[in-house]
Design a protein around this nucleic acid. Structure first.
Length: 469
DNA sequence: TGAAATGTTGGGGCG
DNA sequence: ACGCCCCAACATTTC
């Protein structure tokens, strides 16, 4: 019996894995394979931290496989060459993999599929990407009708259980890269504490979220000072949790919610998962969004692109506490609250008039959950350049956003220790402190914390002008 | 999944 | 009792 290959890409899980199920359905040995693709490792969107998370996730997957009589094979090289070699070693069986939507992934899979028997399966999204279309067959470009159509489709089936055993290939030893040669920074420190890699950690995190926070999600999800979000994005990014597992859990939570407010909480979380599927669909149908604004009229915005401003934004020293706290959170942990992503993105594109693609790339280089579809969609939404985007005049006020979504300044103080002693009434606008209060609070502006690098009111006017042009 | 500017309404002070 | 003004609170429009 031919051995088949389960080609793992961003589906680092044994549970609810349709590619793995397809491979097992052949009845013969299954070889779990991960390929380190030099072309991907050289991408400007790569993150050392995310690579570390991936590598740690591969080690966790290998351990889970070994408990089931199998083992992960990791090889480095051009995917087509690696697959050819491995098939020659193992009997020329089919290759099963979860389909992806990014332009690079699709080109790669087309190239492989022309030369080898590649069988792509669904699983990246809970509803197959191209199943959600308008009645005339065209893709949606506005979220609300997309979500209505998504919800009206037959609910995705129950998630598949993880297999108890994987039939191993035993005819000959299969060389694999040693764990020590996996790429990325060692995954340790704050990020590892917050996001332990692997399928089991994802399951625990989902279960904790379902216990209570999901029912308050509607009211609390925007609060940056609370742990009110699921924190599942890094796991969804690498498929340590499947979209179907997540949406299934959301629907179950809706059904057993104790009261209407709780039901609304779970429904709002499901809606966020649908946003993820919306942007997967956008990238699939409109791959050019990866390089430019979706809307042609907004491809000629005259960005100012001041490098000093960009550096201040990256390093979290703009002088606006909410913006700076958010960027420090990103730099230190590889994750940022969604509300904070919108605030920082609005600040970069509107207050600093810096090309959204600079911000998109920086986020990709820092985020554990950095996903080309969601990240691009989010940036284009805030910049007002995308499908169903915020209108250009929707400009976030960094102080008001702070007052609304971090009312006591707890989030700001957590990430900006230099503001720890600043009185509550000044925490989102420390430049209003008198010299005396600055001295008393141990936070002298210009010494301990910067003055704002731009005046928001002026910057807002300038942005309106620039976008109008 | 904004915020500012402008418009409307109604209560209360006051001559 | 009445008209006038002020202004807060809310609604609508505009960017």
């Amino acid at each position: 019996m031919n051995a088949v290959i389960w080609w793992i890409r961003r589906d680092l899980r044994l549970g609810d894995n349709q590619a793995l199920a397809g491979a097992l359905g052949q009845g013969g040995p299954v070889i779990p394979l991960f390929i380190l693709d030099p072309a991907l490792l050289a991408s400007p969107y790569i993150s050392e931290t995310r690579l570390g998370f991936l590598s740690a996730g591969l080690r966790a997957l290998d351990e889970a496989l070994r408990r089931r009589g199998s083992a992960l094979v990791v090889r480095r090289g051009d995917p087509l060459e690696v697959l050819r070699e491995l098939r020659a070693e193992t009997g020329m069986g089919d290759i099963f993999a979860e389909a992806d939507v990014s332009p690079y992934a699709r080109a790669r899979d087309e190239r492989v599929g022309r030369a080898l028997p590649l069988r792509l399966t669904a699983g990246l999204a809970a509803q197959p990407i191209s199943a959600v279309r308008k009645s005339d067959g065209e893709p949606y470009t506005v979220f609300t009708p997309f979500s209505r159509a998504w919800l009206s489709l037959p609910a995705p089936g129950q998630p598949l259980p993880a297999p108890d055993r994987l039939p191993a290939f035993t005819s000959r030893p299969l060389p694999s890269l040693p764990a020590a040669e996996l790429p990325g920074l060692p995954f340790t420190g704050q990020a590892a504490g917050l996001f332990p890699p692997g399928e089991e950690a994802a399951r625990q995190r989902l279960s904790a979220f379902l216990d209570s926070a999901i029912y308050r999600y509607h009211e609390e999800r925007n609060r940056m000072d609370l742990e009110s979000t699921s924190g599942l994005s890094p796991y969804l990014r690498f498929g340590m949790l499947s979209a179907r597992q997540a949406t299934w859990a959301a629907r179950e939570a809706i059904n057993r919610a104790p009261d209407p407010a709780a039901q609304q909480g779970a429904a709002t979380w499901l809606n966020e998962l649908i946003w993820r599927e919306f942007y997967l669909s956008i990238l699939y149908h409109f791959p050019h969004v990866r390089r430019m604004a979706f809307r042609p009229a907004l491809r000629s915005v005259r960005w100012r692109n001041n490098p000093a401003h960009f550096a201040a934004w990256c390093e979290g020293r703009t002088g606006y506490p909410v913006v700076d706290a958010a960027m420090r959170q990103l730099n230190q942990t590889g994750w940022m609250h969604n509300r904070a992503r919108m605030i920082t993105a609005s600040f970069l594109t509107k207050d600093l008039l810096i090309d959204w693609r600079w911000g998109e790339r920086y986020f990709m280089r820092r985020l554990l959950d950095g996903d080309p579809a969601s990240n691009n969609g989010g940036w284009q939404w805030t910049a007002g350049t995308g499908t169903d985007a915020a209108p250009y005049f929707r400009i976030f006020h960094p102080v008001l956003q702070g007052l609304k979504f971090d009312p006591q300044g707890v989030y700001v103080r957590r990430w900006l220790p230099e503001l720890a002693g600043v009185p509550g009434e000044f925490i989102h606008e420390p430049w209003k402190m008198t010299a005396e209060i600055q001295g008393r609070s141990g936070c002298v502006l210009g010494r301990d914390y910067p003055m704002p690098i731009v005046d928001h009111a002026e910057a807002r006017q300038a942005a309106l002008e620039a976008y109008k042009g």
